[in-house]
């Protein structure tokens, strides 16, 4: 297909990142996207804008300031009591209006439950293209967004364009992009926009929000050290060795998909394409073969260590350091070695 951008779309400029606020916290994926968006904006020679929607108050203002610290040039701030909690209806309405008014060419959102909920509605209303779960974003020679994502269960990658419609939308999963540097004191322009929302017009109500017990949920994604096990551990009892090592290293534990299917671990402990993407400093994979669907979830780790009995296991193709050996024996020994070195016995007992 050829690029034939119609006249009215040519007015679309600048890169936007939707800053995801739930309660008072900004989801870190938003900063990762600001990092990615910065590069796109620089290549295109345009501005990078953060879009912040919030109830009036501290949280929204703080998010704007942080956006600048991470690299945004300007921020659209929409404050309205109706926006206190995420709901599809008002958020989609406001976001769509913003796009129609200010006409960005690229729109990035986190592929979180919130970002995906919002992106689908917005793209459908705007009748534009959306590339979900992109793993790489680049600008083509002719200025189009080239969004690359896994396809066919991760066996292949494909590069997708939205040639003739604007904005070009993409979502990116947490931890796929690196965290950009945060520079204190950077400032930018704030454009405040009024929303004209009336609570009575919104049918869907948030009755309550039950925060997760400070359990694994977010921690695995953002942990610095992750130890994971696979089918090679052979039994749920042996999986205990993974948990122990994770504890000794003050890290989190996870596993491959079959372990979830077998009920050895909970679904939110799954690492990989259909589980969590992680980007720890250290990732230890024990008894995991390294299937492509697993690989895509861990490739961002700084150091990947693999323990596997099979010298030819795929995991050794992308691990940095490896041992050919029996994980059920090496894991306890490794826990013991670390424990002895750092004398953290009390922690792990």
């Amino acid at each position: 297909m050829k690029k034939e951008l119609s006249e009215h779309f040519k007015a679309y400029k600048h890169v936007w990142v939707f800053v995801e606020l739930e309660g008072r916290e900004v989801h870190p994926v938003s900063w990762e996207l600001i990092g990615a968006g910065r590069k796109l904006a620089d290549t295109l020679g345009v501005d990078l804008a953060a879009v912040v929607m919030a109830a009036p108050g501290e949280a929204g203002r703080h998010a704007v300031a942080e956006s600048f610290a991470y690299g945004a040039d300007l921020a659209y701030l929409v404050e309205d009591p109706v926006l206190a909690h995420y709901r599809n209806d008002p958020y989609a309405k406001v976001f769509t209006q913003l796009v129609n008014t200010y006409k960005p060419e690229i729109l990035l959102l986190g592929a979180t439950t919130l970002g995906r909920d919002l992106a689908g509605s917005v793209a459908t209303t705007l009748l534009t293209g959306l590339t979900a779960d992109s793993t790489e974003l680049a600008v083509d020679a002719d200025g189009s967004l080239a969004a690359t994502r896994p396809t066919f269960g991760g066996s292949l990658l494909c590069t997708i364009y939205t040639l003739n419609f604007r904005p070009q939308m993409a979502t990116v999963r947490p931890r796929v992009m690196p965290m950009p540097e945060r520079r204190e004191g950077r400032v930018g322009r704030v454009i405040e926009v009024k929303a004209d929302l009336v609570e009575e017009d919104i049918v869907t109500k948030v009755l309550s929000f039950i925060p997760d017990r400070s359990s694994s949920k977010a921690n695995l994604t953002y942990a610095d050290i992750v130890v994971a096990g696979g089918l090679g551990l052979q039994s749920p009892e042996n999986f205990q060795h993974v948990k122990t090592l994770a504890k000794v290293l003050c890290g989190e534990y996870g596993g491959s998909r079959p372990l979830v299917q077998k009920g050895w671990i909970e679904a939110d402990r799954q690492i990989g394409q259909t589980g969590k993407t992680i980007r720890p400093k250290l990732y230890i994979a024990a008894g995991i073969s390294g299937a492509i669907q697993h690989r895509v979830g861990v490739e961002g780790a700084d150091l990947i260590v693999a323990i596997n009995t099979d010298r030819n296991a795929q995991i050794f193709d992308f691990a940095h350091l490896g041992v050919v050996g029996d994980a059920t024996r090496i894991l306890p020994a490794l826990s013991e070695a670390f424990r002895a070195r750092f004398a953290v016995n009390r922690l792990a007992s």
Partner: peptide, 13 residues
């Protein structure tokens, strides 16, 4: 509804 960091209880028509 599963949301980031918690569960949202939503009511609608």
């Amino acid at each position: 509804r599963r949301a980031e960091g918690g569960v949202q209880v939503l009511a609608t028509r």
